[in-house]
Structures are given as C-alpha cells and as structure tokens.
Design a protein around this nucleic acid. Structure first.
Lengths: 152, 152
DNA sequence: CAGCATTGTTATGACTCATAACTATAAAGC
DNA sequence: GCTTTATAGTTATGAGTCATAACAATGCTG
C-alpha cells in the first residue's frame, strides 16, 4: 500500500487501484500467483504442472495418444515430444504401439506412485486456494471460471 | 465433448474431466483464454496487455518512476527498459528527470489518446467476460479472485 | 562522511511456445 | 482398389517472455 499525493493530500492507495476492479486483470494476477505457488509445491517432486496434468490425463484415459492428450491440454503435438520424453525417461509413462502410426500412453507403476504424490500436493493446494476466498464467494469461483473458458 | 469407453459403455466426457473441478486448473485455463482474447483485441491498436497496463498506471500515477511502475505490475526493472523504449518510440510516454538518478513518466497527448482507445477495448472486453458468467455467480468472481492474489 | 539502498541500464541465458517441414500411416471418398 | 485427404510422431527452429547478474551513478541514512 503506497501513498499517493493528489490535490496536495496524501491518500493510501495501491498504484494499480485502477486495475483492481477489472476481472481480466484480477484473473491474470490470480492465475500467475497461483501458478507460481503450485509450481513451487510440485518442484520437490520433480514435477512441473504440465507433467502433473499429463499424468492425470494419461491415468484417467489410458492408451490415449500423445496427440489426444495434447489436444485436451492445448499443447502442440510438437511440444509433447520433449515433455513425454522427460516423463518416459523418468520411468513414469510408457508407450505401446496401437497401430503403425499411433502409440498409446500408460502410466507405469512408478508413474502411478508419482501421480499419487502429485495429487496429494495438488489437493492440498486447491484446498488452500479455496480457503483464501471469503466463504460467501467460495462456491461461485469454479462455475464462474468454467463459464469463462469452457465455451472457448 | 469426446466419447470415452468404460466398462464397455460409452460415456460423453471431456478427457480432462478430472481436472475440471480443480479451481487451480480452471483458473489457468480461464486466464490463458482471457489473455489470448484480450491480446487479440488490443493488437489492432498496436498494444500489448502490458503496454495498456503501463499506460493506465502512468496515467493515474503521473511522474512515477519506471521502477515503481514495474514494482506495481511485477515487472523486473531490467525488463521495463525495452518496454518503455517501445512506448516512448511510439510517442505515448515521455520521461523527465526527477533528480540525477530517477526519471518521471508521463503520458503524451498521443499517449492519452491511445489510452482512451485502449480503455474502450478493455471495458468492452471486461463486460463481455462478465456476460459469460451466469448471473448468480457474476458478482462473486472479482472478490474471489482478488482474495487469491491480493495477499501474495 | 561512510555505508547502504535504489535507479536505470546492458548483457545474457533459460524456458516456453508456435510454426513449418517431413515421413509414414490410416481413413475416406469415389 | 486406388487416390486423396487427414492424422501421428518427430525434428528443427525462431520468437517472445522472463529472471539474473553485474555495473555505474546517484540518493539516503546514521
């Protein structure tokens, strides 16, 4: 909270007060702060957020292709390659040929264990997020957010 | 909406259904979709979102330093340099020395005009964001979001 | 006045992300 | 069946964002 001077008087204001009532701005700030926090929490597990997302999707959609997973997460096919390579090198994911051109993804035993760890961290994080929201607003966040991007 | 097969039955589900009830995930998706949309709307004005934010802050906090603006927007001092250079080259912002080491930022006439254009776009965008949210959730979004990052 | 903090700046490296190009294979249309 | 079109996986690459470190010059504090 800075002190701004206007009309020769001192007002306690944030410099970005003009922006604070804009949902778009709040959205960006909230997302980037949440992103940073979750990344920090996942880091000790050797996971990035994308990794965790992919593990979750592969687990609940076994034998999906890399392309399909990427499509669901808005990740370009090309960028799935190094991502999956990491997960495979770590021994969490394995691929099996579906036909001559596609390959299905599955979690290994180690992958499922890692996913369990990740889910614990994520659930704790989500809970802590919700806990920060005043009770009367809490239940509205998820439906509101989903309305914002589900259509896109 | 894809079709998943489980227990030999077909269910209409999204692949990321497991993620959809997580506020953190919804937050990231909503923010990135909103970010992309606003960027597209500002692009015809020759503005990025950061540019618009800086214009707004400089306008409402005239003679602030680059460091202060950066601090308010979580932009590193170092990264303010090319950013301000662009705004200055475009003739929207000018700097005047405050003392031997600091310089105050101000909008030029053209800068204020550009800001007015930007604000129109932004207001329209914010309104369209809110319009997508079911009425009963709408008023809760902003306070909920602000609770998420204001503390950080 | 001495030490510390801050400003503006340059340089740089890491990381993310989108695009294009290519091969091989599958699927669809006729 | 055969041709055309779409898709999967991959490589290479370039743009853009962002954080860090270092530095000189200046202001501020005790």
């Amino acid at each position: 909270m800075l002190i701004a001077i206007r009309n020769n008087k001192r007002y306690p204001v944030a410099m970005d007060e003009k922006l604070r009532d804009k949902p778009g701005y709040a959205l960006r700030r909230a997302a980037s702060s949440a992103t940073a926090e979750l990344a920090a929490r996942l880091d000790p597990l050797g996971l990035r957020q994308v990794d965790a997302s992919v593990l979750i999707l592969v687990d609940s959609n076994p034998l999906s292709t890399a392309s399909a997973i990427g499509r669901a997460l808005d990740i370009q096919r090309a960028n799935m390659v190094p991502l999956l390579k990491r997960l495979e090198d770590a021994g969490w994911v394995e691929r099996s040929p579906i036909d001559g051109k596609s390959q299905g993804l599955e979690l290994t035993r180690a992958g499922r264990a890692k996913l369990a760890e990740a889910l614990e961290v994520i659930e704790a994080f989500e809970a802590s997020l919700l806990a920060r929201i005043p009770a009367q607003h809490r239940d509205h966040l998820l439906p509101a957010l989903n309305a914002l991007w589900a259509g896109a």
